[in-house]
Computed example of a mutant assay.
Amino acid sequence: MPDQSSAAGAPKFWVVVPAAGIGTRMGADKPKQYLSLLGQTVLEHTLQRLLSLAGIEGLVVAIHPFDDLWPALPLAQDPRIESVDGGHERCDSVLNGLRQLAPRAHKLDWVLVHDAARPCVRAETIHTLCEALREHLVGGILGVPVSDTLKRLDEHYGIQATLDRRALWYAQTPQMFRYGLLRQALEEAAANKRAVTDEASALEALGYCPRMVEGSRDNIKITRPEDLALAAMILSRQQGEALQPGEENGR
């Protein structure tokens, strides 16, 4: 995270994590954010990554109103984390998180919105995002270029065309925007009952042009059962990379 300690009146950094989904595509007996991953829940891994960032002013996690799993997690008692009721859609949960921050957040502060099911995000990748957007008036998102050939289909799954992928990117999180603009965009989307799939699309609907910042391909989102094994492999590899030479032998 950028060092704001020497800049009087510099924008603060807040984090909102929408975690109210039920994860139907996982086919599991609990929401995907509570599935076990290397001895912890997916959500715990995600929140620990975010809490490790220097310069975070506060973190709000949006939880389903009838979630009885969150209170049982040790992190639920962490004073750095506050919870708020989630909404019917992701955008509703994010908006509830922004409203929770209203008494403290300035309109030019930064808000990082991160998926609960992205436990593999690297701190250095988030730092890159923050540095790239430091002077931006709107904000932007992490993403990676599309590498596969893309096809457009008709309603019968017939291939109609091959798309030019050179200008296409996979969107990731965190997505980082100025507090005032992001709240305005989500408030207007809610008032107009306009569906938005991510924070960037809400800003785009108001005519803004968020910036794309290249992230890392290992910042995967756990969506299907096979993604858990992949996330476990990525986390294990990242932990191995973090070891300093000689640590393996106790030196």
Results as ranks from 00 to 15, higher is better:
residue 238 Q to H: 11
residue 87 G to S: 01
residue 154 D to R: 07
residue 178 R to D: 05
residue 187 E to P: 00
residue 249 N to T: 13
residue 234 I to F: 09
residue 241 E to K: 07
residue 77 Q to A: 15
residue 100 Q to A: 14
residue 219 N to I: 04
residue 180 G to H: 12
residue 141 I to P: 01
residue 112 L to M: 15
residue 73 L to G: 04
residue 44 E to C: 10
residue 45 H to K: 14
residue 23 G to P: 03
residue 45 H to C: 13
residue 199 E to K: 08
residue 45 H to P: 00
residue 158 G to F: 11
residue 106 H to K: 13
residue 124 E to D: 15
residue 135 E to C: 08
residue 99 R to E: 08
residue 66 F to L: 10
residue 67 D to F: 04
residue 135 E to S: 13
residue 41 T to E: 00
residue 74 P to A: 09
residue 238 Q to G: 11
residue 129 L to Q: 14
residue 110 W to H: 02
residue 207 G to I: 00
residue 110 W to V: 10
residue 205 A to D: 05
residue 95 L to Q: 01
residue 149 T to K: 13
residue 40 Q to V: 04
residue 70 W to N: 02
residue 72 A to K: 08
residue 106 H to Y: 10
residue 177 F to D: 11
residue 119 P to A: 09
residue 219 N to M: 06
residue 50 L to C: 08
residue 173 T to E: 08
residue 179 Y to F: 15
residue 166 R to V: 12
residue 144 V to G: 06
residue 217 R to V: 09
residue 68 D to T: 05
residue 217 R to Y: 09
residue 247 E to F: 14
residue 194 R to I: 06
residue 10 A to R: 05
residue 54 A to Q: 10
residue 112 L to S: 07
residue 151 K to E: 15
residue 129 L to D: 07
residue 43 L to T: 01
residue 187 E to C: 07
residue 112 L to K: 01
residue 69 L to C: 00
residue 178 R to C: 10
residue 208 Y to A: 01
residue 126 I to M: 09
residue 78 D to T: 03
residue 148 D to N: 13
residue 111 V to P: 00
residue 169 W to G: 02
residue 96 N to H: 13
residue 74 P to N: 06
residue 47 L to C: 05
residue 189 A to E: 04
residue 212 M to R: 13
residue 159 I to M: 01
residue 13 F to M: 07
residue 182 L to C: 03
residue 192 N to P: 01
residue 24 T to P: 15
residue 175 Q to M: 15
residue 7 A to W: 15
residue 162 T to N: 04
residue 89 E to T: 05
residue 225 P to I: 08
residue 134 R to P: 03
residue 66 F to M: 08
residue 185 A to G: 10
residue 96 N to R: 12
residue 49 R to T: 12
residue 24 T to E: 14
residue 14 W to A: 06
residue 141 I to K: 13
residue 104 R to E: 15
residue 16 V to F: 01
residue 223 T to C: 12
residue 34 Y to K: 00
residue 139 G to W: 09
residue 30 K to W: 05
residue 235 L to Y: 10
residue 243 L to Q: 14
residue 37 L to E: 12
residue 37 L to V: 11
residue 51 L to H: 08
residue 60 V to D: 00
residue 220 I to K: 06
residue 154 D to M: 13
residue 1 M to W: 09
residue 232 A to I: 06
residue 141 I to S: 14
residue 68 D to F: 06
residue 63 I to K: 08
residue 58 G to F: 11
residue 237 R to V: 11
residue 127 H to W: 05
residue 175 Q to C: 14
residue 112 L to P: 04
residue 2 P to R: 15
residue 187 E to H: 09
residue 11 P to V: 07
residue 40 Q to L: 08
residue 221 K to G: 10
residue 192 N to K: 03
residue 140 G to S: 10
residue 194 R to C: 10
residue 160 Q to N: 14
residue 55 G to V: 01
residue 71 P to N: 03
residue 226 E to M: 08
residue 109 D to L: 07
residue 235 L to D: 03
residue 163 L to N: 11
residue 86 G to F: 03
residue 120 C to G: 02
residue 101 L to R: 10
residue 245 P to D: 12
residue 58 G to Q: 11
residue 70 W to M: 04
residue 245 P to S: 04
residue 52 S to E: 14
